[in-house]
Design a protein around this nucleic acid. Structure first.
Lengths: 242, 242
DNA sequence: CGAGGGTTTGATGATAGTCAAAGTGAGTGG
DNA sequence: CCACTCACTTTGACTATCATCAAACCCTCG
């Protein structure tokens, strides 16, 4: 049995905006099913004209782009509640691939219903656009990070961003969050080599700023780490859920 | 006298989608005026809660983000027809600053009317979301470029992207387009130093791949340059105009 | 003619990449 | 239950790309 939007566990999280009854119903009607995938499964392929789009209900994943020569850029990390396939819905084609890093459960929507859903509720349409704008905002920050920060600041920035997202989702306990990715994934997200990323991580660990091992990231003093990153912590804003 | 949307010169360009009479009228009602600024004028500031948003009607500019230590990341370059301030409209706050590189004329819209405009026409709402998704798509590519390509490929990629945009707007004549930016701007967009960017540009010039000087960029064989960039040329898609 | 912004060039050095190999731990099969 | 494998992490040595520093050059402008 699939989870009904009515009882969606994500909606209980403060981080997500409240939804009106009407919004819940419209979203429920839009939802065509659920997809359960194992860790490592590809979900969407760059350039593909995918018939379906998703919301991550459980589990984590990543978005990435491959270059012809095989290099990989991780665009960002997927957390529960993330909307996946907006580009497919709007542009008919994904600009990046998506794959599951852990086992995942995804709410499935048919792309063919997307336009109706969009026009059927201007508040939901607004939410979708809000998500797109937020994604753009994040990518501007990520670009700035990769372009302008040196390795230690860059890694620090990434860890702060990940940690704050997890915190907003209630995934942080005892200053630690689950981080089921590989160092290679982080390296590919920052444009650094695996080796250098590894050495930078041990530097942060030695300085007691952030410790990531066994799929768990521990940060005791976020402010200090943000200091190293040379970033200012913007307040966390709640976001809509599709 | 301001340009009416009815007679907007940009609409004559094939690159922009046709608009229905209704869309033209709604856009006209949304438009509150025009802004003419000199080269170098700041248009929007990062973090500001700007009351107005814009569409570039004439001239070019750039979006950028500043780090606390003064480093600058150029997010992208603004061409005529670009919508400016989507983040302000949706999120209430810009994630980057915008400034005019040349003299510019901008169509001005009041942010307070934005939501009405959005809900007043689902096709215009769709267009706005389309633009947001496209921006996200571009930024994914830019991130990949900065993260994964070496200097020569990176510069080549940027020049190809600029040239194709200009071409779509009919700004290319005799294999050359106006490119009124400084080398420092390009350097800041690629995360490279000015000196290294300069040396890379002369390399491309020596190899007869791309010559940029006196504010003009000429490329005789785009395919060859794209080859150097290690990129595949996606077909150009027309886009909506706000 | 001098000043200033932008571009170009050369010399030097540091950050980060590459290569190679060892270490660790979970899972598998004999 | 003990090799053995495999995927991932860690470390060390060497290299190269790119940053930094400095100075010259070129134009336009007052």
């Amino acid at each position: 049995m699939t989870t009904s939007c009515e009882k969606c566990p994500l909606r209980k999280i403060d981080f997500f905006d409240d939804m009106s009854q009407d919004e819940v119903e419209k979203t429920q009607r839009f939802k065509s099913g659920e997809l359960v995938v194992d860790a490592g499964t590809p979900i969407l392929m760059e350039g593909s004209n995918a018939p379906q789009i998703y919301t991550a209900l459980r589990g984590m994943g990543l978005r990435y782009k491959l270059l012809p020569d095989g290099k990989r850029q991780v665009i960002n990390f997927i957390f529960p509640g993330d909307f996946i396939g907006l580009q497919a819905g709007m542009l008919g084609e994904m600009g990046h691939s998506v794959e599951a890093t852990t086992n995942m459960t995804l709410c499935v929507f048919d792309r063919s219903d997307f336009f109706d859903f969009f026009r059927g509720s201007s508040s939901r349409a607004f939410d979708i656009t809000w998500i797109a704008a937020t994604e753009e905002h994040f990518l501007g920050g990520a670009l700035t990070n990769v372009g302008q920060r040196d390795a230690i600041s860059s890694v620090a920035w990434a860890l702060v961003m990940l940690f704050r997202r997890a915190d907003a989702l209630g995934m942080v306990h005892n200053d630690t969050m689950p981080l089921p990715f590989k160092q290679q994934d982080l390296a590919d997200s920052l444009g650094l080599s695996l080796v250098h990323t590894n050495k930078t991580l041990t530097k942060l660990r030695d300085r007691q700023l952030a410790a990531w091992s066994d799929g768990k990231l521990t940060i005791h003093d976020l402010g200090e780490l943000a200091q190293v990153a040379g970033m200012e912590l913007e307040p966390v804003k709640s976001r809509p859920l599709i």
